[in-house]
Structure formats: C-alpha cells, structure tokens
Design a protein around this nucleic acid. Structure first.
Lengths: 143, 143
DNA sequence: GATAGGGCTTCCCATGGTGGTAAGGTCAAG
DNA sequence: CTTGACCTTACCACCATGGGAAGCCCTATC
C-alpha cells in the first residue's frame, strides 16, 4: 500500500507519516523497487494507534512510550495507567489555566459597556501594574 | 533604562522584548550612543500591557489590535469587548477539547486494573479502529 | 590605568506538530 | 506516448520562547 492509501486508511496525513518515520516514532517503512514507501495493514494499525493517541492529546514522546507498552506482551497495565493518569493531570492543569483566563476575561467583559464610548475596564485591567495576575478577585479599583 | 532593567520591571524577558521589536509589535527602542536599547517608564508600561495580555492568552496578533485600541483615544469599548469575547470563545473551545480528552482518558483509566497484568482497556481503546473519536460513550466492546 | 565581571549587541539554532511548495521520478490509464 | 495522479526529497513557515556564541561596553575594584 502506498503512503497515500495508508494515510487515508489511518487518518494520519502522508506528511506526518514521513515525519513520524524521520523522528523515529515508527521504523522506516519498506520500500518498493522504485523507492516508494510500502505499508501493510499492520503498519496502518500502528498509525491508527498513533492518531488515536494524538487525538487524546498525547505528545509524540508519550506515544513512543505507549507504543512500547502496547507492543510489550509482558507489560503491566499499571504502567499504562500511570502514563494515562500523568497525562490526565497535565490536561487538567492546562484546562485550569485556560479556565482562569476565560473567567478573568469574562468578568472584565461583563463590566465593559461595549458601546461607542472609549472607557473600557478590559483595557484598564490590562494596563494595571498589578502582578497578581489571572486572579478573578476584586482588585483595587480595577474591576 | 537598559533592556535588562526593562525586562525586570515589566516581566517580559529581554529576549522577548527584542523579539517584539523585531516583529513590529513595539516600535524600535531608542538607542544610547553605544547602541544599547534605552527604555522609558512609558515603554515599560506598554511591555506590562503586553505581558498581561499574554497572560490572558491573547496571541501577539491580537495584542497588536489591543495595543492599537488602547492607544486610540477615540476607540469604542464595543470593539475591545468584541475582541475579548472572540478570545473567550476560542478559550472555551480549547477547554472543551481538552475536557473531552481528559474525560475519555479518565473513563479508560477507571476501567484499567493498573496491576501487574498486561490487559489494559486504555491500550485496547487506542488500537480500536473506531473513527468516532473522543466520545465518552459506550463503544462496542472497547469500554 | 588595567583588569574582571556582568550586561549589551547580533546572529544562529531548537523546540513541536503541522502545512505548503517546488523539482523531479514513477505508475497506470487512455 | 502522453497525461495526470502519485511518490520522493528538500526546503520554508508557523508561534512564542529559550539557549548559546562571539564580540563590544560599562562599572567597580585594585
């Protein structure tokens, strides 16, 4: 199977398949006599695994570990679970950061008249010399 | 004031100050006779504005707009509010994506024994040929 | 006045994951 | 045999940030 077909079958773009090969996430593909990469159903299966992992937000480095575990028949599910939980923690941290930003901004937007006048609490907040950032608590005169 | 002091005073690294200048977010700084960049308190004020905006997740492109509005005395607060709301929407979208990932992963992790045995629903899910991704609903035999 | 150290300058490189594009080879159908 | 679709490699770009090297400048101490 050519790279284009493998891409369609796996949902990973041809571009990314080459990239994954180049960076060592997957081993170099077999080549036809003319130099085309040649993929088996098994290869596509691996690519699907990778895509699914990416969809769940795992980094390529983490996927390297996941793949190793996946292909290790004597793995311990505890190792997989630990990896997953560590990733969940990272995701939750990111969510928290973004939520904090959104909350702060929402609070500011709620205070903004949003009309033709120039006065705007959002800008006032942005120029505030306050170093306690991203906190949605009353700030002297700012909110 | 040298760039190092401006960095300390604003919370923006010297590296990033140069970058912002180079990319046109801020105008070229004044220079001393010997070629050192020279910053005023006003410049630091702008840098603080930028840092605060970055802390709220605005991109440099968005900050360009925010700065323009900030420095436009005849601005309309509606424009600022629109920018903020559009950013809030983007943040919420990101949060939703991450939340979906975290939920799916949490569900899988909850189903994983996490012991010495190799059987692991997380890996089973990752290799599933299911294209309806990121959905935390029962999937035939996968969860 | 010399020297040491820290700060400044520019320039280049790397990150991560993805897309684009250009020049050229290959394959299959008409 | 031509055409078009596909493949190859090799670059460039994104975005925001950090690292480092080579060399100049400033200040403090001896």
């Amino acid at each position: 199977m050519n790279i284009g077909d493998a891409a369609k079958a796996s949902g990973v773009s041809a571009k990314m398949i080459r990239y994954y090969e180049q960076t060592g996430l997957i081993p170099p593909a077999d080549r036809t006599a003319s130099g085309y990469r040649d993929y088996s159903d098994k290869d596509v299966h691996v690519l699907r695994f990778i895509r699914r992992s990416r969809d769940l937000g795992f980094s390529v480095a983490e996927i390297t570990e996941l793949l190793a575990l996946w292909q290790d028949r004597s793995r311990q599910s505890a190792d997989v679970k630990a990896l997953a939980r560590s990733h969940i923690t990272a995701l939750r941290q990111k969510i928290e950061n973004l939520q904090q930003m959104a909350d702060t901004l929402q609070t500011l937007a709620d205070c903004c008249a949003g009309d033709h006048r120039p006065d705007c609490p959002i800008l006032t907040d942005l120029e505030t010399d306050d170093d306690d950032l991203l906190v949605v608590k009353p700030r002297t005169g700012a909110i």
